[in-house]
C-alpha cells in the first residue's frame, strides 16, 4: 500500500446527520406506525378478524369497551374492525393517486426541463393555468364530469397533485443540468444519452422518493376529504372519510364514530410526513 496521505489538509468534521445515524424517537414512532398501517392494509383479518360490514342493530352506539375497542356505530358495526379494514382503501387510494400524480408530474416536468426553451415555456404556462385551479377545485371539476366514486376520486386527487410535482421536478432537472459534473461528463467524452441516464436522471429522481412519501400522506387526506364530502367512497364502505361523514350527524352523542377514523387519518398523514422528512434529511447529508 503505497501513496502517502496529504499533510495538514483536514477532512471536514463529521456531520451531525450522517446517513447511518440512529433514528430519533419521532422517527421510530412514525416508522412503527407506518408498519402497522401497512400490515393493516395487507392483512386486515390478522389484526381485526371480524366483518367490517357486519351489522348488529342491538349493539349500536356502544362507547369504547372491551369487546369493541373503538365502540360501535349506528348499525352496531365494530368501529375498530372498520377502521382496520379501511386502511386498505386509504392506502391503496393514496398510493394510486400519488402514482398518477407523480407519473404525470414526471412527464410534464421532464418535457419542460429537457426539451428546450419553447417547450419549457409552453409547459410552464400550462402549469401556471393548472395552478389557477387550486387544490380540490381540479378534483371537483373532474368529479363533475365523471361522477362521484372511489375510482374517480383517486384519479381526481392524482391529477390535482400533478402540477405541484411537475414544478418541483422541472426545477430539480434544470438545477442538475446546470451542474458542473454534467459538464465534466461531457469533457470526459460521454454521449448525451449516457449523461442523461447516468447523471441527470438519477440525481433528479433521487428526491422523488421523499416527495412520494410526503405525497401519499397528502393524497390519503384529500381522498378522505372527498369521501367526507360525499363524493368518494359511500357508506357503508369502511373507508375513513366515509366513516367520518357518517359520524358527523352523531358527533354529540357518539363522538367515537368520528374520533377514531379521524385519528387514523391524522396519524397516517403525520407519520408519512415525519418519515418523508427524515429520509430527506438523511439523503441530503449522505
Amino acid at each position: 500500500m503505497s501513496g502517502l496521505e496529504v499533510q495538514a489538509d483536514r477532512a471536514p468534521r463529521s456531520r451531525p446527520f450522517s446517513r447511518h445515524r440512529r433514528p430519533r424517537a419521532a422517527e421510530t414512532i412514525a416508522a412503527v406506525l407506518a408498519l402497522f398501517l401497512v400490515l393493516a392494509a395487507v392483512l386486515p383479518d390478522f389484526l381485526a378478524p371480524g366483518d367490517p360490514l357486519g351489522i348488529d342493530p342491538l349493539g349500536a352506539f356502544q362507547s369504547p369497551n372491551f369487546t369493541h375497542a373503538f365502540g360501535t356505530d349506528e348499525s352496531g358495526r365494530d368501529i375498530y374492525t372498520r377502521v382496520v379494514h379501511g386502511t386498505q382503501y386509504s392506502l391503496v387510494i393514496g398510493v394510486a393517486a400519488t402514482a398518477i400524480g407523480l407519473s404525470l408530474g414526471i412527464v410534464l416536468g421532464t418535457l419542460a426541463g429537457m426539451l428546450g426553451r419553447i417547450v419549457d415555456f409552453t409547459v410552464n404556462r400550462f402549469l401556471e393555468v393548472l395552478f389557477a385551479f387550486p387544490g380540490l377545485l381540479l378534483a371537483l371539476l373532474f368529479i363533475v364530469i365523471f361522477g362521484p366514486g372511489v375510482a374517480t376520486a383517486t384519479i381526481a386527487v392524482g391529477i390535482s397533485t400533478a402540477p405541484g410535482y411537475a414544478r418541483i421536478i422541472r426545477a430539480q432537472l434544470i438545477s442538475v443540468r446546470g451542474k458542473s459534473f454534467v459538464e465534466a461528463a461531457t469533457v470526459l467524452g460521454r454521449t448525451r444519452w449516457q449523461i442523461l441516464l447516468r447523471h441527470i436522471l438519477p440525481n433528479t429522481l433521487a428526491p422523488l422518493f421523499v416527495l412520494a412519501t410526503l405525497g401519499i400522506g397528502q393524497a390519503i387526506v384529500w381522498a378522505a376529504t372527498l369521501s367526507y364530502l360525499g363524493l368518494g367512497a359511500e357508506p357503508p364502505t369502511a373507508e375513513w372519510g366515509a366513516m367520518l361523514s357518517a359520524g358527523r350527524t352523531y358527533i354529540t352523542s357518539a363522538w367515537w364514530m368520528s374520533f377514531f377514523p379521524g385519528l387514523f387519518i391524522v396519524l397516517t398523514a403525520v407519520s408519512a410526513t415525519v418519515l418523508g422528512r427524515s429520509i430527506d434529511k438523511r439523503m441530503r447529508h449522505a
Binding site: 367520518l244 379521524g262 391524522v266
Partner: peptide
C-alpha cells in the same frame, strides 16, 4: 409545525367544534 401542517381540515374542524362548542 409538522403536525399542524398534516392536520386535515375536516378533522380539525370537527375537533374544534367538539372542544369549543360542545
Amino acid at each position: 409545525e409538522i403536525i399542524a401542517a398534516a392536520l386535515p381540515h375536516f378533522w380539525l374542524a370537527t375537533s374544534l367544534i367538539v372542544v369549543f362548542s360542545i
